Amino acid sequence: TETYTFDSEDQAEEFAQRAQKKGYTVEKRKENGKFKVRVE
Rank of each mutant, 00 (worst) to 15 (best):
Q11L: 12
E27R: 06
T1P: 12
F6E: 00
T5D: 06
E40G: 11
T25S: 11
R29H: 13
R18A: 14
K22W: 13
F15T: 02
Y24S: 04
Q17L: 12
E40K: 11
E9S: 05
F35M: 03
E2V: 15
A16V: 09
E13T: 08
R18L: 14
K34N: 05
F35P: 01
K36A: 11
V26H: 02
G33M: 04
V26W: 03
F15R: 01
T3D: 10
N32R: 04
E14K: 09
K22V: 07
T5S: 09
V26Q: 01
E31I: 07
E27W: 11
F6N: 00
K30Q: 13
V37K: 00
R38S: 12
Q20H: 09
E27C: 09
V39G: 00
G33I: 02
T5K: 03
K30C: 09
T3R: 03
A12C: 05
E31P: 00
K34A: 07
K30W: 13
S8K: 07
Q17S: 10
T25R: 12
T1Y: 14
R38P: 01
E9I: 06
Y24E: 03
Y24K: 05
E40P: 04
V37C: 03
R38G: 04
V39E: 00
S8I: 05
E9Q: 06
F6M: 01
E40L: 14
Q11W: 05
Q20K: 11
Y4L: 05
Q20F: 09
T25H: 13
R18Q: 14
Q20A: 13
V39L: 11
A16S: 07
T25P: 05
F35G: 00
K28L: 15
D7R: 04
E2P: 08
V37F: 01
R18F: 11
Y24D: 03
V37G: 00
G23H: 03
T25D: 07
E31R: 03
T5N: 05
K36R: 07
D10N: 07
N32A: 08
F35K: 00
F35H: 05
Y24A: 05
E31V: 08
T3Y: 11
V26F: 03
K21G: 09
A16H: 03
K22M: 15
E14A: 12
R18W: 15
E14T: 07
K28D: 02
K21R: 10
V37Y: 02
E27D: 10
E2D: 11
R29I: 15
T1W: 15
Q11E: 15
A12I: 01
N32S: 06
K36F: 15
K28Q: 12
K30V: 13
E13R: 06
R18M: 13
E14G: 05
E31N: 03
G33S: 04
F15H: 02
T3G: 04
R29S: 14
V37R: 00
F35A: 01
E27Q: 10
F6A: 01
G23L: 02
E13N: 13
T5H: 06
G23D: 02
N32Q: 08
R29M: 14
R29C: 12
A12W: 04
A12F: 02
T25N: 11
E9W: 11
F6T: 00
E14V: 08
Q20W: 08
R29G: 09
T5F: 11
E2F: 15
K36T: 15
V26M: 02
Y4C: 10
E31C: 07
